[in-house]
Design a protein around this nucleic acid. Structure first.
Lengths: 342, 342
DNA sequence: TCGCCCCATGAGATCGATCTCATCGATCAC
DNA sequence: GTGATCGATGAGATCGATCTCATGGGGCGA
């Protein structure tokens, strides 16, 4: 591929002049500029960004690490980041960690080696991630996305998970529910999920209601009806459940319907995330929406500011209750259909 | 950040020796190696990939362009690509085009400037994309993903869309359907969608059935019931529809159910793509599955082979019918409920 | 003991663009 | 007319790692 030197030679000028023709055309005489441009066209010259990056000590690249792309929350946020980054002339290097700490470590190391100008990371548990301790010693700007902020920790952007889930719980309470449970992936794998559970308990307590033990599903985004069955039987059976994420809620609704349970007539189901898809389904998914687009955009904007040496404030971004058909009033009779395994 | 030269100085060796310590340790004496390693640790040395890339004239980066990340088909495929690429020591630069030709152009230009070692692109219509003409003149290996191959065009990887949709159609015919329609996004925006329509017509013709005109939705991934309403009325009303993609099918099912239509009792709905989510819903989505993981993996494997100068064969990857509850037998009585706008 | 070869290491060039500083010619003010 | 200024341009250094080639010392066979 043609380089600047060949263009300069063909145009009969020095490399410096050829370089200026592209970087600051106004500093080159029109005649010369024309000659260089012609030469560049003729040779199909395309500037080499790698060389520029080395010289400039800046790559105009941002490293992004998300747990997975199979969850629309991350895909949608990444989409927004990509658009925002490109508008600012930045590219994204995208990686997935599967919440695996050793992969997280390797990925961050790799990206720092690549000399990305900034890092946007979503980790499983921000507090005890070894990677993050390392990162705090680095000078590369780094921002946590979705992870809750910790005092003395890395800057983080996202919603107030605890408050948001408390509001979601209050919404169910306001609809008349008293027997409300919460469903999560394994081991409250992510720090967000833990905060959401705390928010749920808080709201229940406020209303003098008994918070139930968490109902744990074997997978993060797919419901197993058997895990829920005990909670749907007996005199204290649940009339509503909160899920830690929308995919879990959607698959739970599917399983319930397959078992001839009606949502919301027999059980109200509420999600968390507000992915686009939830709107399309029937019943539409009632969810506590995280502003995924805004989070993506703000993450990029914040990182760019940090790259320029500023340290912008990082308030929580606003969550919003999204009404949906998956939540209704509790059944009037406590006699709900019995759950049969499909 | 510490560079190799400072490490070399601290270790009291030359840059060449320091470099060798990391690149080919066996060529350095154990004593020296130890000294260099200690110096590197002490200075928190992290090799600069940009410099290496410039010197090596290879970036170990692959540029990926997809239309959108909000469609799980692309997100899932990208996820697979990322895993496969990282295993091979490559990183991905990810961009979204929104099917916008000018963005496609700019993105490809940008990535070539970044000197990616290979490109994996999904474009709207492969045949007349101006970008691709440009690319054929370049030496950077480039592979189309999902787009159908064209004689004399760029190599492409994906399923045989026409045959796949014909098989999907035959599946509905085998279930007893005779009045089958097809629903697509605007203007058969993508070349895949056009081939799928051709496959549908072919299968209908084979069975002496009348192919219907395409039912076009204003959006690529969201159904508008009003567009479908005419086809669901009258003596020749449809008993089954094929959708060009799963998101469209899923939102169509949602809209139908909201209008008190039963799927599949009143209308069978079949999708195309086989996204994971389809399995979780009730009714589960019957779909013609594209092997998204395999496509992503094979795309990377093929690109890597191309980077090494080979030109591996590119057979179609196998599609597979995924049964689902959204397809059933046609209603026995031709008297289906009337569609009411919600 | 001489000569050859191999191993470990170093000096210097290289990748491609950009930045600094110097130079040269022309224009302008006095 | 002469010195000052400005605009256009070129020479050379620089970013950091790696590659080639040269060198020097040690070991081994004759």
């Amino acid at each position: 591929m043609a380089d600047l030197l060949s263009v300069a030679k063909l145009a009969g000028v020095s490399r410096a002049t050829a370089s200026r023709t592209f970087a600051s055309p106004e500093r080159v005489s029109p005649t010369t500029r024309r000659k260089v441009e012609d030469a560049a066209t003729q040779l199909a010259f395309r500037p080499n960004k790698v060389a520029r990056q080395l010289r400039a000590q800046a790559t105009k690249m941002i490293g992004v690490m998300v747990p997975s792309l199979n969850n629309p929350v991350f895909a949608e946020q990444l989409h927004a980041m990509e658009v925002a980054a490109r508008e600012a002339g930045y590219s994204l290097i995208v990686t997935t960690s599967g919440y695996d700490p050793s992969r997280e470590q390797a990925i961050v190391e790799e990206m720092l080696s690549q000399r990305v100008d900034g890092l946007a990371l979503t980790v499983a548990v921000a507090r005890d991630s070894a990677v993050l301790a390392t990162l705090q010693r680095e000078t590369t700007p780094c921002l946590l996305v979705y992870n809750p902020p910790h005092p003395g920790g890395l800057p983080a952007i996202g919603v107030d998970n605890r408050t948001a889930m408390a509001e979601a719980t209050r919404h169910l309470i306001a609809r008349g529910h008293r027997h409300i449970g919460m469903v999560a992936g394994p081991l409250l794998q992510s720090d967000r999920a833990r905060l959401r559970y705390a928010g749920y308990r808080q709201a229940m307590r406020e209303h003098g209601l008994a918070a139930r033990p968490l109902i744990e599903m074997p997978r993060h985004t797919q419901a197993e009806l058997a895990c829920l069955a005990p909670a749907l039987a007996g005199p204290n059976r649940l009339t509503a459940v909160l899920c830690t994420n929308d995919l879990l809620a959607i698959s739970l609704i599917g399983e319930l319907q397959r078992a001839k349970f009606s949502v919301p007539d027999d059980l109200s189901v509420m999600g968390f995330d507000g992915i686009d898809l939830g709107r399309c389904l029937y019943p539409s998914l009632c969810s506590m929406e995280q502003p995924r687009i805004e989070i993506g955009r703000a993450a990029i904007a914040t990182l760019l500011a940090m790259i320029q040496g500023q340290s912008p404030p990082l308030p929580f971004l606003p969550h919003a209750l999204r009404e949906g058909e998956s939540v209704g009033a509790p059944p009037t009779s406590r006699q709900a259909p019995t759950l049969r395994s499909p």
